[in-house]
Computed example of a mutant assay.
Amino acid sequence: MAGNPNTLIALGSSPDSYFIGYGRRYFAENMPDSFTSHAKKDLNISMTQWISMSKALDTWVSHNVATAKFHFNGNINQDIRDHLSGANGKAAANFVSFPDCDNPAHYFIKGKNEGAWNAFLDDYFVQKLSKTRTDVANFDAGLTGMLFGKGKTYILMFKAGFLADVDDDEVPSEEHPLYKVLVQYSDGWCIERGSTLCFYDSRYFYLKFKRPGESQIKMHWNLPPIMSAKLAELKEQAERPEEQIALMQEDQMWIQVAQTRMNAEMQMSNMLADQMRRGGLSILAAATGGTVVETTRYY
């Protein structure tokens, strides 16, 4: 149903390193101290669309859609920091991701403005991006992000679909779980932010698919057994009536935060502000993905 609790996943450096959030509650194990502190103090699961974590876990970024603020580790690379704030001539970001690389200076940035993006990556990815940009019409305008998996695997996310290129050494057959789900949704589906691939085992992923112009999201995942068990536990907790009431109250509070911010930023007229107040639930839908359908797991 509409307004289902948001699911928020970050895969760490091993099966016992992860963040799983659902509704109001979460589990975090063997994640960097700076991120764990963020999760305890000011991470709201409903309003956090995505978390990006580097392979070494030394760099991370999350984004709160209500406040439009990024949260990140204090010693993050200066170029990434400039993109997050739109400072020093860098295009202001609205999405960040990291490749399977030990260099904390490597990143992909999607800018707030249409067509704006930047990346500092190994030559392999630079060449792939350059060729795809030449081959795909309106590449810059349609690009919404880039996800990285183990080895050379990556997914380019577009407004009208996605392009996936898997590492043959990591995804060796058509029976591989990641290959199967990408083929299943290859025609007419987009991959949403909040999706993530795994750096330590290519079989593990959490992917959110949506057709352009529609609100329903289909979620597919293949997670380590401990993560699957923890997610099931969180879902069970979220079914309790007191949890549902508390989540609704928290979400309404955050919707008000978002409305206040947008009113200030846009200097809206009283009429438009009234329209925003009456349409406030659209902010929540942006975070939760609207109607959510859980589908086949690829164990």
Results as ranks from 00 to 15, higher is better:
residue 189 W to P: 08
residue 270 N to G: 11
residue 289 G to I: 01
residue 9 I to H: 01
residue 121 L to E: 02
residue 58 D to Q: 14
residue 218 K to P: 04
residue 296 T to H: 11
residue 213 G to K: 02
residue 188 G to P: 10
residue 38 H to L: 15
residue 226 I to V: 12
residue 103 N to F: 08
residue 260 T to S: 14
residue 97 S to M: 06
residue 78 Q to H: 15
residue 30 N to D: 13
residue 40 K to L: 11
residue 101 C to T: 13
residue 56 A to N: 15
residue 210 K to H: 12
residue 58 D to H: 14
residue 9 I to T: 01
residue 66 A to E: 01
residue 191 I to A: 06
residue 150 K to D: 00
residue 199 F to S: 01
residue 92 A to S: 14
residue 83 H to N: 15
residue 100 D to N: 11
residue 119 A to C: 08
residue 142 G to C: 12
residue 190 C to W: 03
residue 147 L to K: 01
residue 31 M to D: 10
residue 286 A to M: 12
residue 84 L to D: 07
residue 249 Q to T: 14
residue 106 H to Y: 13
residue 235 K to T: 01
residue 134 T to Q: 11
residue 89 G to E: 10
residue 264 A to W: 05
residue 187 D to L: 12
residue 295 T to S: 14
residue 101 C to I: 11
residue 93 A to W: 06
residue 57 L to Y: 10
residue 8 L to E: 00
residue 292 V to L: 10
residue 155 I to V: 12
residue 57 L to T: 12
residue 116 A to H: 14
residue 17 S to K: 05
residue 295 T to K: 11
residue 72 F to W: 07
residue 28 A to V: 15
residue 280 G to L: 04
residue 117 W to Y: 15
residue 285 A to G: 04
residue 107 Y to N: 02
residue 172 P to I: 00
residue 50 W to G: 03
residue 191 I to M: 06
residue 168 D to E: 09
residue 69 K to H: 15
residue 220 H to M: 06
residue 232 A to G: 06
residue 63 H to C: 12
residue 127 Q to P: 01
residue 9 I to K: 00
residue 183 V to C: 13
residue 94 N to E: 12
residue 98 F to A: 07
residue 268 M to Q: 03
residue 27 F to E: 02
residue 13 S to A: 15
residue 264 A to G: 04
residue 105 A to P: 10
residue 245 I to Y: 14
residue 169 D to W: 02
residue 174 E to R: 12
residue 296 T to A: 15
residue 213 G to V: 03
residue 138 N to E: 11
residue 167 D to W: 01
residue 270 N to F: 07
residue 173 S to P: 05
residue 118 N to V: 10
residue 133 R to S: 08
residue 148 F to W: 00
residue 8 L to A: 01
residue 249 Q to N: 15
residue 173 S to M: 05
residue 115 G to L: 09
residue 108 F to T: 02
residue 109 I to V: 14
residue 162 F to T: 02
residue 284 L to N: 01
residue 80 I to E: 08
residue 14 S to P: 07
residue 162 F to M: 10
residue 96 V to T: 09
residue 79 D to I: 15
residue 283 I to S: 03
residue 151 G to N: 00
residue 175 E to C: 09
residue 78 Q to W: 13
residue 148 F to K: 01
residue 278 R to T: 13
residue 81 R to P: 11
residue 172 P to D: 04
residue 179 Y to M: 10
residue 141 A to T: 08
residue 37 S to M: 13
residue 76 I to Y: 10
residue 280 G to C: 03
residue 48 T to Q: 00
residue 201 D to H: 02
residue 290 G to A: 06
residue 157 M to P: 04
residue 165 D to H: 08
residue 272 L to V: 08
residue 275 Q to T: 09
residue 155 I to F: 03
residue 100 D to E: 05
residue 173 S to A: 03
residue 117 W to G: 07
residue 177 P to T: 02
residue 295 T to M: 08
residue 101 C to D: 15
residue 63 H to Q: 11
residue 51 I to V: 09
residue 97 S to Q: 08
residue 151 G to Y: 04
residue 230 K to P: 00
residue 214 E to H: 11
residue 16 D to C: 05
residue 24 R to F: 03
residue 298 Y to L: 12
residue 293 V to H: 08
residue 219 M to R: 14
residue 143 L to S: 04
residue 192 E to F: 01
residue 82 D to V: 12
